[in-house]
Design a protein around this nucleic acid. Sequence first.
DNA 1: CGGTAGGGTGTACGGTGTACACCTGTCAAG
DNA 2: CTTGACAGGTGTACACCGTACACCCTACCG
Lengths: 226, 226
Amino acid sequence: MAREPLTRERVLRAAVALADESGLDAVSMRGLSQVLGVVPMALYKHVANKDELLDGMVDAVIGEFETPGPELDWTAAVRARLLSARRAVLRHGWARRAIESRTRRTPAVLGYMDAVAGTFRRGGLSVDLTHHVMHALGNRIWGFSPELFDAPPGADAPPPTAEEQRAMVAEFARRFPHVLEIATAATGGDPTAAGQGCDEQFEFEFALDLLLDGVQRLHERGWRSG
Amino acid sequence: MAREPLTRERVLRAAVALADESGLDAVSMRGLSQVLGVVPMALYKHVANKDELLDGMVDAVIGEFETPGPELDWTAAVRARLLSARRAVLRHGWARRAIESRTRRTPAVLGYMDAVAGTFRRGGLSVDLTHHVMHALGNRIWGFSPELFDAPPGADAPPPTAEEQRAMVAEFARRFPHVLEIATAATGGDPTAAGQGCDEQFEFEFALDLLLDGVQRLHERGWRSG
DNA sequence: CGGTAGGGTGTACGGTGTACACCTGTCAAG
DNA sequence: CTTGACAGGTGTACACCGTACACCCTACCG
């Protein structure tokens, strides 16, 4: 039973699967080759190097983005696109980091950016307003915003006693009162849970709508740069 | 002439200098130890591991941020803070990547975030609006926005002939018309210079002001979440 | 004077990406 | 039917990385 031959498709699929279940760090040329039952250098017959492998993985995620129907107006259409991108990125926990680390603009990346830009243009936005709003959206067009208060992996030290925890919170409150304030606001008032309870989805949509509303106002006023 | 002893300060300073002139990738424990005239393992007496080294480098950049005077209103104060952060980050080309890769919140990081949040609070914004706007600003707090159209390093292939270039542009125009459109708009119409001519500073301030204006309007209306 | 501790050293391990030479099976042309 | 090219999998090797661990030297303190 000769195993079916490797293809670029099979390599990329296996890489995505491996990253899905073991994290992005598990995707090394050696590790990936092992799950494919093959020697590391075999991969290089299908993928130029590791960067291209990562590019291909990102392209696979982009391939999962959905295209909104034509009945939506431009704000709703952009919203639908970005929220679809977000769902895909959230399905693959590693995608965020991978996208952030990529610098190459593959055809899939360009195609997606073109679709988003086209949605603005079809809504009647000028070329330069479209340009600026694309920049303003930044990584949000990939469905994520930078996580300011990203919860540290945790559980690396023995849990502190109640007494120690009280002291830590007090010290924190003295030095970073405003951070504590806004962090606990999101948890319903428990300062020891700060950061955990933050609703990322809400934050994403809040910022997205803030930007879209602002752009819409500029558009209605016939804003021009320079 | 016994050289003066290493200190954490000296290590960090050397790391920053090395990154400034040779890039972040040149900052390996081996490379750094070499410029300090010392054996790699010596560094571990002053820095727990490489992650902590990077954290220290980022903290050094944060130490260059300036505090705005108390005479400014909250939008101007935030603006001044973020633009100062931007100047510091731009002085150190590696800082962007370093900040993006960091996940640990050092006291310096928390202190800066606290200062920004405090500026909003002193301006009268509610705790939860402050929370959301911090998220919405995202990495812009550190003075940079993600570069959608980051120019590839380039110059790795022989420059294409005029004929090839024309063909490439034509192909690009066919597949990604809107991307080409908004990319050339920023260059005054030269499609072959697409992406290079984009004024990052303008984009940063455009997005920043869009967000600040939006937040200000929400604030004036007494916006509350939920 | 002796012990102790902080700081620099040397060696070694396991991991990474990948260059390069090699082999092997398939298939088309002579 | 043979031959030879070629696509694809193999094996070895190199240079680099972060860092664990044992060691030694030197300065200082009791």
